[in-house]
């Protein structure tokens, strides 16, 4: 077994940072992997713009699967390989779409797709609906929810920013979640 197959504490720290949405870590993960995916897409009948779109969808899908623990990378290499494979699968699907399948091939390769676990359709629809409806919330609500869930800021910290008490921050977070849930009912 190669040495890289063993999880190490440094990678576990890195993975934890990614799970916690650490901006430098996500940014570096994006930067490091994008160039490989762009090269692959461009070498396989694509453009840099298409590579960007495919990679961003793959990046979100990988992040989501890590959050949902549908994918638990053991090493940095396995994480990078997974991002590449998800991107590749998405590009192959795109090429096979009705618009492209008659005219464009994959450099004569017979691609074998790696199994990449996807979330179920209902959950995917719900996530898409959240992404769409969150923009209908007011600025304050979006800010509270982003700070609490994405930035992992404490209610105490959020309260200090808005000049509220912690109890008010907790109540406002609840009201914002309820507003979002109501939007999702429609």
């Amino acid at each position: 077994m190669p040495a890289d197959s063993f999880p190490n504490s440094k990678f576990l720290q890195q993975l934890e940072a990614i799970k916690n949405n650490s901006e430098p870590h996500l940014r570096e993960l994006y930067r490091y992997n994008y160039k490989t995916v762009e090269k692959y897409v461009v070498q396989n009948s694509g453009t840099a713009d298409e590579a960007k779109d495919i990679f961003q969808e793959a990046f979100i899908a990988v992040w989501r699967n890590i959050q949902l623990e549908k994918f638990i990378p053991q090493t940095e290499n396995s994480l990078n390989a997974y991002i590449f494979q998800v991107s590749k699968n998405k590009w192959i699907s795109y090429l096979r779409s009705a618009m492209h399948k008659k005219t464009i091939g994959l450099s004569g390769q017979e691609e074998k797709e790696m199994e990449v676990e996807e979330i179920n359709v209902a959950d995917k629809d719900q996530l898409d609906a959240i992404a769409e409806n969150i923009h209908k919330l007011g600025d304050n609500c979006r800010e509270i929810l982003k700070r609490f869930y994405y930035n992992k800021e404490s209610l105490r910290a959020i309260a200090a920013i808005f000049n509220w008490t912690e109890a008010t921050a907790r109540n406002n977070k609840y009201r914002c979640i309820e507003k979002l849930r109501n939007l999702l009912k429609n």
Partner: peptide, 19 residues
Amino acid sequence: LLAIGIQEAALREQLPQFH
């Protein structure tokens, strides 16, 4: 799922900057 959806929306907002 709501927590992940909220985070995902925030992450999407950062992607142009990362790119």
